[in-house]
Design a protein around this nucleic acid. Structure first.
Length: 280
DNA sequence: AGTTGGACCTGACTGC
DNA sequence: TGCAGTCAGGTCCAAC
């Protein structure tokens, strides 16, 4: 599923491909992709004719900054299976395509979404932190706002399992299942431990691990693990799956100590993966 | 306020 | 071979 490294890879590639182009038309092939708006037509009216002034990202969401009399931000919520592709206009429409941005210069930006959890949202202005979508979001984990002290402070008020708290976008923006599992492993802390019970040194290890995992994830252009469908803007898979220690490695030997990786259910039915030897 | 569980969705996989 | 059931998890919402 797309997390921060995948979204950042998309942001980076879109910056090269589409900045300066104009959105000639927005075609919504599946109305669910525009469900945040009254109608696909309304969504289209907010983006058509606008020039793409820049590209951004908040957490797991790539953003397009559109200029004009009323500046607008187009937010891509990727959900579980959302993908963005830049293709020539004549490229055949792939089945899961939910929306197409027809750009000046003859290219299409296509939004594909197999499981249809994702969608497009247009919001006034370029300050996404003031939109309802991101108002309560936590800091970007690679920014200076994210510190061990911040983690310690937040964790002291949360009794839920560490894995859950790490994935809470209101705590840290951009972490999903893969990154959360990997961050806990690299910090040497069991994901089922109550966040409140983390010591200061543990928070420092976690902070360090988070920055490492996310930076490496970006350097690898995201993760296209096993049943994951993630591909970048050019249709190329990432390579972070080759550096994964625990995610979806249930029963396989730990790459550090050889102990079989365990999988435990979280509240809500989701699984977390961890090494009973390396993580305490 | 924090925590939990259900709903949404569909391809892939399991079992009979 | 085929069909039903299960699984996966990002995000929002309702209910303790």
């Amino acid at each position: 599923m797309p997390e921060l490294p995948e979204a950042e890879t998309i942001r980076c590639q879109l910056e090269r491909e589409i900045v300066g182009k104009t959105v000639r038309r927005l075609e919504v092939h599946d109305a669910r992709a525009g469900r945040e708006h009254r109608s696909p037509k309304e969504l289209a009216s907010l983006v058509e004719g606008r020039r793409i002034q820049g590209v951004g990202r908040r957490g797991k969401a790539p953003l397009l900054f559109l200029d004009g009399k009323r500046p607008t931000t187009l937010i891509f919520r990727l959900g579980m299976t959302g993908l963005l592709r830049v293709v020539p206009a004549e490229a055949p429409l792939e089945k899961p395509t939910a929306a197409t941005l027809v750009l000046s210069g003859g290219k299409h930006l296509r939004f594909l979404d197999q499981r249809k959890f994702g969608g497009l949202i247009a919001r006034p202005g370029h300050d996404v932190n003031s939109t309802p979508d991101f108002r309560d979001y936590g800091p970007e984990p690679l920014s200076d706002d994210f510190t061990p002290e911040y983690l310690k402070d937040i964790f002291s008020r949360r009794s839920a399992k560490l894995e859950m708290v790490l994935m809470d976008q209101h705590v840290i923006a951009g972490i999903g299942k893969i990154c959360s599992d990997e961050i806990c492993f690299r910090a040497g802390i069991r994901p089922a431990r109550s966040a409140r019970r983390l010591t200061k040194p543990m928070c420092e290890r976690l902070w360090q691990a988070a920055r490492e995992v996310l930076s490496e994830g970006i350097a690898c252009r995201g993760s296209s693990a096993r049943d994951e469908t993630y591909l970048d803007v050019y249709g190329v898979p990432g390579s972070f799956q080759d550096r994964i220690y625990v995610y979806q490695r249930t029963g396989e030997p730990c790459r550090v100590c050889g102990t079989p990786i365990r999988r435990t259910r979280l509240p809500g039915g989701r699984g977390m993966h961890w090494c009973p030897e390396c993580q305490k």
